[in-house]
Nucleic acid binder design. Structure first.
Lengths: 330, 330
DNA sequence: TTGTATGCGTTATCAG
DNA sequence: CTGATAACGCATACAA
């Protein structure tokens, strides 16, 4: 069912019909200076023939495809879905198309996609990846999200550190005196790990005691349960405030707390990170630090499309916001 | 920052370096029959030069891009995110790339994308759209999801009718004696509207009374509230079972019911449609009829890539399943 | 089996 | 301002 024989009229046909030169047709189509009489003749011929522009020819000639590749784990996780959406919108505003590659956290796939993107002459690559060994192609504009590679590879990210500080201060402000931070993460140096750093720094600054549990990818969720029950005595949890690495994990932790008989937010207040909403646009799921996804998307797109090297900082952090949604007492 | 001058080595360079003809290089790369000695020389030259394949040339020559366009409202709604993901995976298995277009339900954008997809010589279009006036291009393989255009345009869909029947029977089986169906929808003839048809038919068959409220896009949510309070007397809802067009709406309705003091599932059991999970992979949000998204994705992809016209039925309905998740008493 | 040569549709250079 | 013409990188028909 794949159509391989769509031979519509070409610019040459239009030129012949209009009685002008091929180059003139090209100029009309690209909006360059052309005498009005010529322009009209060409437009008429285009309509008469039902001419349709063919990008393959242009791509071959110019080495530009007006396409950016987005490499992302999936669009099932709502955060990634949101990000993909806003990046697509931002690209489209600048007249670029998006080629989407889902890695499913598979390292081989990531390198494969990089290869493929280059074969397809994309004009740039935006990647959110967790592969530590990924070799970034030098020959093609590259922007990463949330992940540091080297100072030569621009990275766009939320202000994760600032978000961590914000969470600690907010919990303090809401009366908490004994905090904990919980997360799962890879061992990679990436931006999200700064959530913890900011949180810890703020706790120290405010002289609030805090504990940290950070699981790596291989440890099971039950480690969190052990952690919580270790700090659970006489029907009471040792913490009155939790800052959790992602909304998704926060949601799971809250389920566990409920099973333990710990009430949220009465006994313990919980703040997550990301800003996930129910069905993408309904209410927030937990009180959380919201990532500025549309701004992240715009920033990555501006960066990858800019010709100006000063638009290529090694790291750009965008401000987060706090939102209350039932798991805190505000 | 957009790279327009990446002039790497071409097949001609490889040929010269290997001391063979250009055509031979092409044949090696495309895996055609080539003498072993030649193949080795070519492979060596490719490595030595760091040659990278350029798809623009091939696209121009063959009119094939190995790219399929997916037109979809967004990836914020979790159902669409899931669908996009599985379609991408299915395409990738067949060595196809995906160009993604988000319509945001905007009709002008839909027609624009159709135009753009053709300019970019995509090999086919898979579309989930709500535009009644959309003109399907004849010259390019086209498959729709959930939406009937004409018998000439193949449509892939869940068995919405069967799902409606299934919901009614399940509610009956769970002891309900007074049902209602609620949804919002466009006036379009589309597959999801058959959810209601199946539900109503099953109710009649079982001689169960049922009410229906179907809002169009312009009516506010408050119409649902009025409907519910109209059927609410002496602290009791007239219905003991609700079938709701989507999980998303079901979620909202349940919030409203809680505000009214109606308990779910004790006072009224609720079944949604779609099969949305928390964060895409955690628990189901409501008891629901689950759409077979991976199968839908595979079917659309098979259809659009098949050369065999018998793989192009006008409608293909895939079986749904029921899952219980706390809003029913099973 | 391998080499040669042509053309896909476009842009861009250069003359007029 | 417009016309003619040469690439761009590749696949393929045809010749050897």
């Amino acid at each position: 069912m794949v159509g391989r024989e769509r031979n519509g009229p070409t610019m040459a046909d239009v030129a012949k019909k209009a009685g002008v030169a091929l180059g003139t047709v090209s100029r009309v189509i690209n909006g360059e200076q052309v005498g009005e009489a010529y322009r009209e003749k060409v437009m008429e011929a285009i309509k008469a023939l039902g001419y349709r522009y063919n990008n393959s020819g242009r791509a071959l000639r110019t080495n530009r495809t007006n396409t950016i590749a987005l490499i992302i784990p999936n669009t099932i996780n709502p955060y990634f879905g949101l990000l993909a959406h806003h990046i697509n919108i931002a690209l489209e505003k600048r007249n670029y198309k998006m080629m989407l590659c889902f890695t499913e956290y598979d390292r081989d796939r990531e390198t494969e996609f990089l290869q493929m993107a280059q074969e397809n002459m994309v004009d740039g690559i935006i990647a959110l990846t967790y592969n530590p060994d990924l070799v970034i192609p030098e020959s093609i504009p590259f922007v990463t999200i949330d992940r540091f590679f080297s100072v030569k590879v621009p990275c766009v990210s939320s202000d994760n550190y600032g978000g961590g500080v914000m969470a600690a201060r907010k919990l303090r402000e809401l009366g908490c005196t004994n905090l904990a931070f919980m997360r799962t993460a890879s061992i990679l140096i990436n931006e999200p790990s700064k959530r913890m750093d900011g949180f810890a720094a703020a706790c120290r600054e405010m002289h609030i005691p805090y504990e940290v549990i950070a699981l790596d990818e291989k440890q099971p969720y039950s480690e969190f349960e052990s952690f919580l029950s270790k700090h659970f005595k006489d029907g009471k949890l040792a913490f009155d405030g939790l800052f959790i690495g992602t909304d998704s994990l926060a949601w799971e932790i809250i389920k566990t707390l409920k099973q333990m008989g710990v009430r949220v937010p009465e006994d313990v207040q919980v703040i997550g990170f990301d800003g996930i909403r129910m069905f993408g646009d309904q209410e927030y799921i937990v009180s959380t630090i919201v990532q500025p996804v549309p701004a992240l998307a715009r920033a990555s797109v501006n960066m990858i499309l800019s010709d100006d090297p000063t638009d290529r900082p090694s790291l750009m952090c965008l401000p987060v916001t706090y939102v209350s949604a039932g798991t805190t007492r505000d």
